[in-house]
């Protein structure tokens, strides 16, 4: 058994270098086919057992539901708005306890915020901004299913234009559902100059693993946005989670990238982007763009936005132009 993903590795090239050992065990209340859990599980294989997940209210709060926990490491549920501040308290406490000889260095742990997009993009943004600003040495894992999922799929500021949610229904005032564009959290985070920012997708496990391996060598804020296809909220069959994760990347709607010390690199640039419709079609949250009549204007707007984004990316190096 390798545990965790061979720490001596700087990067992996094949799936078979991913750790066999699991650090988040089954038996939880999370929906079957959850893309966010898939991403977190892969991340945990790099982080290993000496980890405390500091959680903000969201779907994943149900991972540790008394009297059961799936984690081999530790867990602390805080509030919806302040998980990053919780990470601050834990990290600072461990540092000072070690400095004062009250905790052996071997018992130190990685401090990892686990939060959904509702917390990350909305109510918890201020606390996260503060933690990055203070140079806190911590990880932040956002499972981004583009809505308040735990409360039944209401719009968050991560909800993309054109998606229907429980609070942005299609109606006489909006044919698109959500009229706002998704906040660019990657850029908001990057503007804070953290040590590392990356997007990851559960369907790209080697890319995901390598980003966590790279971040492990860095001190400071290490921030991850994980694309988290959500069968329950996006209204598709759970077996298709990996399909939508893949299509999001191949259509260019979800860019795989990282920024080290602020310098952006796209870690995967599809040679030719598929039309966004391939990603949108089949997801119930976008059905109104196709039925009963096609909403060409909205579809074009989504495609244009993606095209504009990639026009700014160098097609071979993946660097921002």
């Amino acid at each position: 058994m390798t545990s965790p993903t061979s720490p001596e590795l700087e990067s992996i090239q094949t799936l078979k270098q991913i750790a066999r050992e699991e650090f988040i065990l089954p038996g939880t209340s999370i929906c079957g086919g959850c893309g966010g859990l898939e991403a977190l599980r892969l991340a945990a294989k790099v982080l290993g057992p000496q980890t405390v997940f500091v959680n903000a209210a969201g779907c994943f709060t149900l991972l540790a539901t008394f009297p059961y926990t799936p984690f081999k490491g530790s867990w602390l549920y805080t509030t919806m708005a302040s998980a990053a501040a919780g990470a601050q308290g834990v990290r600072d406490a461990l540092d000072v306890l070690m400095a004062r000889g009250k905790l052996p260095a071997k018992d130190d742990v990685e401090v990892v915020v686990v939060a959904g997009d509702g917390s990350t993009y909305d109510i918890g943004l201020s606390a996260t901004s503060g933690a990055i600003f203070r140079g806190l040495n911590f990880w932040y894992f956002c499972y981004d299913n583009e809505s308040y999922g735990n409360t039944g799929m209401q719009m968050s500021s991560s909800t993309p234009y054109g998606a229907r949610t429980a609070t942005t229904p299609v109606g006489i005032h909006s044919q698109a559902g959500t009229e706002h564009g998704k906040k660019d959290m990657f850029e908001i985070w990057r503007a804070h100059r953290p040590a590392y920012v990356a997007t990851v997708s559960p369907r790209f496990p080697i890319d995901l693993t390598n980003k966590f391996l790279k971040a492990k060598t860095l001190r400071g804020a290490k921030l991850f946005l994980a694309h988290a296809p959500c069968p329950t909220g996006w209204l598709y069959d759970p077996e298709r989670t990996a399909d939508y994760a893949r299509l999001a990347v191949e259509t260019g709607m979800f860019a795989l990238k990282e920024a080290v010390d602020g310098v952006v690199t796209h870690t995967y640039v599809p040679r030719r982007h598929r039309p966004v419709e391939e990603y949108l079609q089949g997801q119930g949250r976008y059905r109104h763009l196709f039925e009963p009549t096609r909403n060409d204007a909205a579809l074009r707007q989504i495609q244009d936005q993606v095209d504009r984004y990639w026009a700014g990316v160098h097609e071979t190096t993946g660097a921002a132009r």
């Binding site: 066999r20 065990l25 086919g33 599980r41 559960p202």
Partner: peptide, 29 residues
């Protein structure tokens, strides 16, 4: 094995997948 969100698929000594039917939620990924 890599895709299973639940960690309900393990690999045996010969790398064949073994589904933990006690836990598998049946997402069919």
């Amino acid at each position: 094995f890599v895709r299973c969100p639940e960690a309900a698929i393990a690999l045996d000594a010969h790398d064949y997948p073994v589904v933990d039917y006690d836990q598998c939620k049946g997402c069919l990924l």
